[in-house]
């Protein structure tokens, strides 16, 4: 049960941090500045181009020296990993909002940041919700990799219990069911949320 809570904690915190960082890089990518575009492109290319487990170990060996717990190493590793994908989700959803929306805001005297905040982003978030939910599910399952840096989350607990009792298959099955139930519950939640905010769509 503690493993379950830790899994949820790692997932939620890493997706939240990933969302904030991802939004930042989405703006970098959409910016007119070549330097910011370049920074975002390199960042996304490096993160998407390397395996998550490598990134987690990287954080583990790099940060645990500084006295940072394996929980935070795993969470930060996952957060940055998520952020690259979330950056692309936000970039896509912001670009998918008709240019006329920004123009309409601007023609009413709104500054670009204000029109972005009041007009474009609320619509973009709405559109980003399904892929964000998807990313959350991926993050939830990816959090099992934290087991490799001895974070006692769900998967780690299961394998430890398994090897202690020599019933590996049973525990693997149990942990698989745990993940499945979590994912199904979360899918239900996202669907509910989508239904709720579908009200004012085009």
């Amino acid at each position: 049960m503690k493993g379950l809570l830790l899994t949820l904690q790692i997932t939620v915190v890493s997706v939240l941090i990933g969302t904030v960082v991802g939004l930042l890089f989405a703006f970098f990518k959409l910016s007119n500045s070549k330097i910011l575009n370049w920074i975002a492109n390199v960042y996304i290319a490096v993160i998407r181009g390397t395996p998550l487990i490598v990134q987690i170990f990287f954080f583990y060996f790099g940060l645990s020296e500084l006295g940072i717990s394996s929980y935070w190493c795993a969470t930060l590793g996952l957060a940055l990993h998520n952020s690259a994908y979330i950056a692309e989700i936000f970039r896509g959803s912001i670009q998918s909002i008709n240019k006329g929306q920004l123009e309409a805001g601007r023609s009413l005297g709104m500054s670009t940041p204000l029109a972005m905040r009041r007009i474009v982003l609320p619509q973009a978030f709405r559109r980003a919700l399904p892929p964000l939910g998807n990313q959350f599910i991926i993050g939830l399952k990816d959090s099992s990799l934290a087991a490799f840096i001895s974070s006692s989350e769900l998967f780690n607990v299961a394998t430890t219990q398994g090897s202690r009792t020599f019933e590996e298959m049973t525990y693997l099955l149990i942990v698989a069911i745990y993940y499945l139930v979590l994912v199904l519950l979360f899918t239900l939640l996202v669907n509910r949320l989508e239904g709720k905010i579908a009200g004012g769509d085009e």
């Binding site: 929306q101 601007r106 023609s107 009413l108 769509d201």
Partner: peptide, 30 residues
């Protein structure tokens, strides 16, 4: 732009806001 209103071919109403919210958005925010 506050003094020069513009009406577009494709309306460009804000779909996430009600009719009244569309109308009061700029007066309140700007």
């Amino acid at each position: 732009r506050q003094e020069v209103g513009m009406v577009f071919q494709h309306f460009n109403l804000f779909p996430h806001k009600t009719v009244l919210e569309n109308v009061i958005e700029a007066p309140v925010m700007v």
